[in-house]
Design a protein around this nucleic acid. Structure first.
Lengths: 198, 198, 198, 198
DNA sequence: CGCTAAACGAGACGGTACGTCTGGTCTTCAC
DNA sequence: GTGAAGACCAGACGTACCGTCTCGTTTAGCG
């Protein structure tokens, strides 16, 4: 079992101090400056680190940013609670997601990572594997429970259902096409769930 | 009624030749080079135009790219056809959208514009007003017809319904989390529509 | 006999107002901004004239500057006074020249024109013909009078003598290698004249 | 005793290779293109150096050009030979100077530096200190020897005498007002010296 | 416990592109 | 039909960062 997993290369005699300083500086700067102006030099300066130390361990700015997001999200693979009330569980999850996404700090981070995802397939892959998949698996798990309990239609595709819940919220966040509030979260749950329950 | 509306500034004695050359060059380059390496200098060179001519009429690279997309999308406010079969109409729309998004040319353009949307609220606003809103209005119109015909539940929010159709598809495109094929389009229509019909 | 002579092209139906405005603006700007930053655009703007009007009548910035100097110097071909005292006449001439050259306004103008002379043979030629030669002729004339009166050695070359008077003063102005005061003017006259008188 | 002194800033961990390449490229270009079209970019390109490397160590194009001249002139503080014949020594010095100034390569360099001297007092100061003063001191030294030997008049100012020798030659070079040949050099020596000897 | 190799901070380097400024030309419109 | 206004193509300006490459200086692990 590898001790550290990330987009950065394998450490040999790596300074944990430097690594942490870089990721912290990155997190701080992401919230302070527009992402287009977030430079590796600024990260290095803020972290009190040589540029080479960054380029030694990360292949690109995007990788640093992604690692910073990883560090921040921790495991993130917390399963959805199961109160027995599917609609309520989904609603509280989607409400929490929406709330989180609109927090300035998360918003800035997410924008940065999304920009990288759009331009670098390697980051996109990492994002899917290490953040997206676990998150969706958690939702899917809750739905699977309901499915096994016979609450959902036989012909429903759980993966599609997950995306029908998460997609609209992500869309609003990305495009700013409307308020990302509890009401919206619930409305999405309503539509998706009504289309799935037996 | 203004003759030309875009994110570029109001023209005074502007060269249409230069304007067109810039947008064409931009469209061509977007498909040829990774967006991160699409430079204003390259656009100017390709267009046979001075850099100043670009900076005179557009505030940023993002604005040029957005204008190029506008030019490309033309009106784009084509209404959805109404064959009387709501499910079929939505399905064919979503299938077409998915197919369009995966075309390399559109994909590259969309990635570029999305990157700008994420980093420049002015572009995001323009995108919403001039592309997103008309497109969604078209879908909404088709749904409204069905609603008026009493096919949909009384309590359904048409705007949310639109997003439940479009959001998941956009999500897959953005994150590459699965195939963007006809089957997926239909599955989304199934879930969304089953949750909306009376 | 041409009506106007200068480095500018031949007039056809030229606006005297524009011509004067350009030369005045040039003179004003030469004193206000470092010559390296004196742009044709600035002259045009200051003169309330289109750039094309300048380029239509003058081949280069240097030509404008030179014309402005011409306008300023007027004829300039005033002969040296002849009080009968050669040394006194030369001294007062050289003193006046030195004083003139150190006046900020003349200094700036002279620097500008010298820069052009160094880089544009056409300007250099015009300068020699229209300003330098008349000035030196005036000095030479005074020396010739003395020569004819038998005051100077037979073998003296009057042209060289003129340059031995003017050269050192010009050198000090150009290089700032010492004070350009009356004492220096007199000292130069002393050396040159003592080497020339019988 | 500092190892290198110039208008460039103090080196810290400067690349001698880059420094030399820049000065060599500058020297080459000065002879090839009119000074007005000598750009920093061209120097950088020719030297195989980044523009920033030039701007890091020199404050302006003029400073680079001056440094290139310094490099070229080497010490330059060679004393005048003393054959015992003052007139001959001065004559050969002035003839050599005149010949040197008319060599295309030196001429181009000198024009460039003079343009800078006229527009940048910092360059003018450096020129006086590092090139003009040593050169004049050499001439003055030869004159002083003659003075101490009682060959010159008591009341002669050696500095003025130096300028009466050098000034006319410089004037002809600057203005192109006549041939810069041996005859002229001798004529100037004649006038100046005849005005100075006892 | 001292050697040695690496990782480190610093920052110069060759480059690329930025956004601005100006040169000189060409076009439009008012007088 | 000239001249002001100013857009146009071109290209240099001086700056900001890129990613690479020395520099000496820690620092960690092995021998």
């Amino acid at each position: 079992m590898p001790e550290r997993e990330s987009v950065s290369r394998a450490p040999r005699r790596r300074s944990e101090r430097a690594r942490t300083a870089v990721l912290d500086a990155t997190a701080a700067l992401i919230e302070e400056v527009p992402y287009a102006r977030l430079t590796v030099e600024a990260i290095a300066a803020r972290a009190g680190v040589g540029k080479q130390t960054i380029y030694r361990w990360w292949p690109s700015r995007g990788a640093v940013v992604f690692d910073a997001l990883l560090e921040r999200s921790g495991g993130g693979d917390a399963a959805l609670p199961d109160t027995g009330d599917l609609r309520a569980d989904l609603s509280s999850f989607l409400r929490a997601s929406a709330r989180e996404m609109t927090a300035p700090s998360t918003d800035a981070f997410l924008r940065a990572v999304t920009v990288e995802i759009l331009q670098d397939e390697a980051v996109a892959l990492q994002y899917r594997q290490r953040l997206l998949t676990p998150q969706r698996a958690a939702v899917r798990q809750r739905l699977a429970t309901a499915y096994d309990a016979g609450l959902l239609r036989d012909d429903v595709d759980l993966d599609v259902l997950v995306e029908c819940l998460v997609g609209p919220v992500a869309g609003r966040w990305l495009l700013g096409s409307g308020a990302l509030d509890d009401a919206y979260a619930d409305a999405v749950v309503d539509v998706a769930l009504r289309g799935a329950i037996r």
